[in-house]
Amino acid sequence: MVVAQDDYTHVVGPEHNFNESMYFEFHDPATGLGGFLRLANRPNEGIGERTVCLYLPGGAVGFGFDRPAVTTNAAMDAGGLVVEVVQPMVEIGIRFAGEVSVLADPRVMRDPKSALTSSPLVSAQVHLRYRAIAAPHEQTFESAGQSFAPNHYEQLCAVTGRLEIGAHAYEVLGHGLRDHSWGPRSWQAPWFYRWLHGCTAEFGFMAAYFGDPDGSSRCGGFVFDGADVHRCDDVTITTVRDQDGFQQRIDVTLVAGERRWRLRGEALSSVPLRHRSADGSASTRIVESAIRWHREGEGELYGMAEYLDQIHDGQPVGEHV
């Protein structure tokens, strides 16, 4: 069971690929601003992973990635990104100071080296506060032979703060989701997965679907109805893809007991990322999309869709979901 103390870092396990990571998504529909920041400590490997992805008004994306030196798990503070636990499970502060590349067309990240060297580099400052609007939801999607996120919870939040990127400054007044996991992680462990989420002050959800090479799958998630968090018994996802094979439209149905919720998502902007295995033998594609969700009969909300696929014979393995 998740307890308040879990909002802090944990004792490092013996696994070579022990990973503790925190992810923070936000969106402000009034300004069209959104994005996510992620920081991972991998102290047994001596590195961290820091990602900043800011969806800017007008369609550009501010993107930065770094692998800073990390040798302890004493704090989440690396690569210019700092996480502060103000009150466990209630309020978290994050701040970033560094540089990001401004990508007029975020799809150029299919060739990250070319994209990042040919795009303007600007200074960025991010100061955000995440205040819980719902209880945390704990769920793992581990299976035999996989090592991805054995300890894992998520929480819907109201998000306020300020973002400065280059000569532009934005106030943030919106919502988002934060994610915290720890334990051994390999990006090549899942065959493919779909991770979807969105929220307003009155409604929010997370849906996850993990597929395996033998055709089996695991799914889960939750729905927040403004009062309670409902654990999902079943999740169905149907994806329509664009000419690049990226998620363009997503239909998702979530079931908890006798209750059912249907949403349709439209990708507003997509950033293709990739991970390579340590020996370079395997490649993993991760497409991060800012999504406008339409809840059946209830209006709009905003969030993200993260699609991870291993690449085999040049193709993502999970194109049927």
Rank of each mutant, 00 (worst) to 15 (best):
M1D: 15
M1E: 15
V2A: 01
Y8G: 07
T9D: 08
V11H: 13
P14A: 03
N17F: 06
N19P: 13
S21V: 14
D28R: 03
A30T: 14
A30F: 10
T31S: 12
L33C: 05
G35W: 01
L39Q: 11
A40Q: 03
R42K: 13
N44W: 00
E45K: 04
G48Q: 00
R50M: 15
G59I: 07
G62F: 01
G64V: 00
G64S: 02
R67F: 14
A74G: 11
G80T: 04
V83H: 15
Q87W: 09
M89T: 14
M89G: 09
M89P: 13
R95F: 03
R95V: 10
F96V: 08
G98D: 04
V100E: 04
S101R: 03
M109V: 09
S114W: 07
S119Y: 01
V126A: 00
V126R: 00
H127F: 12
Y130M: 01
A132V: 07
H137L: 13
T140P: 09
F141N: 08
C157T: 08
V159Q: 04
A167H: 10
Y170R: 08
L173I: 14
G174H: 01
H175C: 08
R178M: 04
H180Y: 06
S181G: 04
R185H: 03
S186A: 06
W187Y: 07
W187P: 12
A189K: 05
P190E: 06
F192L: 02
F192G: 00
Y193R: 07
H197G: 10
C199T: 12
T200Q: 00
T200K: 00
S216E: 06
S217Q: 08
S217F: 09
G220Y: 00
D225N: 07
G226L: 02
A227W: 07
D228H: 11
R241S: 08
R241A: 09
D242W: 00
Q248N: 10
I250P: 01
D251A: 05
A256H: 05
A256T: 05
R260C: 09
R260S: 11
R260Q: 13
L268G: 11
S269D: 08
S269F: 03
H275K: 11
D279F: 03
A282M: 10
S283R: 14
R285K: 14
R285V: 15
V287W: 02
E288S: 06
A290Q: 12
I291W: 01
R292Y: 10
R292A: 10
R292C: 12
R295K: 11
R295A: 07
E296V: 03
E296M: 10
G299P: 15
E300N: 14
E300Q: 08
M304L: 12
E306P: 06
L308F: 07
H312C: 13
H312L: 13
D313G: 14
E319R: 13
V321Q: 08
